[in-house]
Write a protein that binds this DNA or RNA. Structure first.
Lengths: 156, 156
DNA sequence: CATATTGCTGCATACTTATGCAAGCGCATT
DNA sequence: AATGCGCTTGCATAAGTATGCAGCAATATG
């Protein structure tokens, strides 16, 4: 089953330093999941895994930029955010996110988790977050956050 | 020249979302650097660049897990650490790092930056840092940190 | 029950990236 | 100047990864 396999895969990604998909394939096999490299590739995409470089410069798969906080998928994050987001507006490269009272810190860290490239950083208060995006990415970040929350909002 | 080219490369990695080395090759060419894919590959290794997945799940190159803090290479980090480290010891998966007074916070954040996979997290005081490594990685983290600082230390 | 629809997978293969090797260059030494 | 060393690069190719397509199974629909 796919879900079970991907759960194992997560573990493997956290515990070991799988260097190739072939290696993961073997590891999965020894756990009873015999799949091809193609499936591993697709699983890794599902999990949002990336190939990082470890301390020695060698590359290995891991669960993304937020490894320390425990990996999560975009989907999982979507679920987390959906309930807390109130509105998202942008002014240039600054994106202002309103949340339920007290949720700002939580949401801000979630945004930090997910927006690896487009976001420079976030500042969270009690119910408001200021998201600083990379030059020209403000609109995009806004759109993405809105789509994650799937809520109606005021204009640009 | 290599250095100049890699500087441009950094910029490209930060500003755009290059999806393949071929793309980077083209971008570099339009900046006056005509090199082959092989060179781009080696440059990316030098810079410690990794292939992340952006919000939509597509993969793109970027400067590692420390994007938000401004990318830097292992080498740069080495230079930063060398002057501040005093000693490194490990006890199981806990690594204790001593720094010059007041440098702990700084060094801790540097370690966070660099130790993408092996380190679970760090706690920094004034001149001491507690580094929590992944199970079984304590020794390795210790060794790496020592080698970064290139200093004599006490035993295990 | 028969027929769609959907999702997961393997196969084969296209695409992408890494690397052994040799050439070229600059600097130091003899 | 000649020799030798180390570094960088391109070339060719190996190694690794992604993906179109088709088959299969499970579930939904008539």
């Amino acid at each position: 089953m796919k879900v079970a396999r991907q759960r194992i895969l997560r573990q493997l990604l956290e515990e070991d330093e799988p260097r190739t998909q072939r290696e993961l394939m073997a590891a999965l096999a020894s756990e009873g999941f015999e799949v091809t490299q193609a499936t591993v590739s697709r699983d890794l995409a599902d999990l949002g895994a990336i190939k990082t470089r470890n301390l020695s410069g060698r590359s290995a798969y891991s669960l993304g930029a937020d490894i320390q906080k425990g990996g999560r998928s975009i989907d999982a994050l979507k679920r987390r955010l959906a309930g807390s987001l109130q509105s998202v507006d942008a002014s240039g490269d600054l994106v202002v996110v309103k949340t339920l009272p007290g949720h700002a810190q939580f949401v801000a860290s979630a945004i930090d988790d997910i927006a690896v490239r487009e976001v420079v950083g976030t500042v969270g208060g009690d119910d408001t977050i200021l998201v600083v995006s990379r030059p020209g990415k403000g609109r995009k970040v806004k759109d993405v956050l809105r789509s994650l929350g799937e809520m109606g909002v005021s204009g640009d």
